[in-house]
């Protein structure tokens, strides 16, 4: 069908005659919604790219921008771009700003480093707790340090082992996951395989602990 129509459309006079005949009956166009403005956000600091210079990770932002949007990089950080940016700001204020940003950046970096170090040092404890002679519960503690959503992890365990699994507060007031049944080895395997939400937990930081019931407890 369309192939037969196309050639006739390409003929210029036809189109011209068609247009005037169309115009009189056109109703006033319905009010169109305004189109949203697309804003490019920096992948590093999440701010709009033009605000990177005030963020705490300017160097990394610059690298990212240069790689992914070279034209914008040119616009913001080339010589003229820098000149244009100065605007009404005096030179000394500008240099002060730059110094400030550098300082802020160093600070943020140190902070991130410290956080990373702390993260790498933190331990995940899988504890097998004897509940009643041959019955156990397993508690997993310390997953939140590796940005694991505890609720989701608990759900994952519950699904995987078909047992009860919940997030509870231990006596110290920290959150931990309690799984019914002795599944400590399996959880260790899951962590080393990085199943689902357990991604990013280093296996070396996991320790298995056994907790026996005290004698004469019951």
């Amino acid at each position: 069908m369309s192939s037969t129509v196309d050639p006739s459309n390409t003929v210029v006079p036809d189109v011209e005659t068609a247009v005037p005949s169309d115009t009189p009956p056109t109703p006033p166009p319905p009010p169109q919604p305004k189109q949203p403005v697309e804003v490019l956000y920096c992948a590093v600091c999440t701010l709009p790219t033009e605000y990177c210079e005030f963020g705490s990770s300017l160097t990394r932002c610059k690298e990212w921008l240069q790689k992914s949007h070279p034209d914008l990089y040119e616009q913001y950080y080339s010589e003229e771009g820098l000149q244009a940016k100065l605007g009404t700001l005096s030179l000394e204020a500008q240099s002060k700003l730059e110094k400030d940003v550098a300082k802020k950046e160093a600070k943020a970096e140190a902070k991130a480093d410290a956080a990373h170090k702390k993260k790498m040092e933190s331990q995940v404890t899988i504890k097998r707790i004897e509940r009643n002679k041959r019955k156990f519960v397993t508690s997993v503690h310390g997953l939140e340090a590796f940005n694991v959503d505890l609720k989701k992890a608990a759900k994952l365990f519950a699904q995987k082992f078909a047992t009860g699994s919940s997030v509870t507060k231990n006596p110290q007031g920290q959150d931990e996951i309690i799984v019914q049944g002795d599944v400590s080895e399996e959880i260790l395997d899951m962590i080393s395989d990085e199943v689902g939400v357990l991604k990013g937990v280093p296996e070396d930081n996991v320790q298995l602990v056994e907790e026996k019931k005290k004698k004469g407890g019951d």
């Binding site: 605000y51 005030f54 940016k85 100065l86 605007g87 009404t88 700001l89 204020a93 700003l97 400030d100």
Partner: peptide, 8 residues
Amino acid sequence: KVDRGAIR
């Protein structure tokens, strides 16, 4: 609109 000095 604020001037550039205030952005920080």
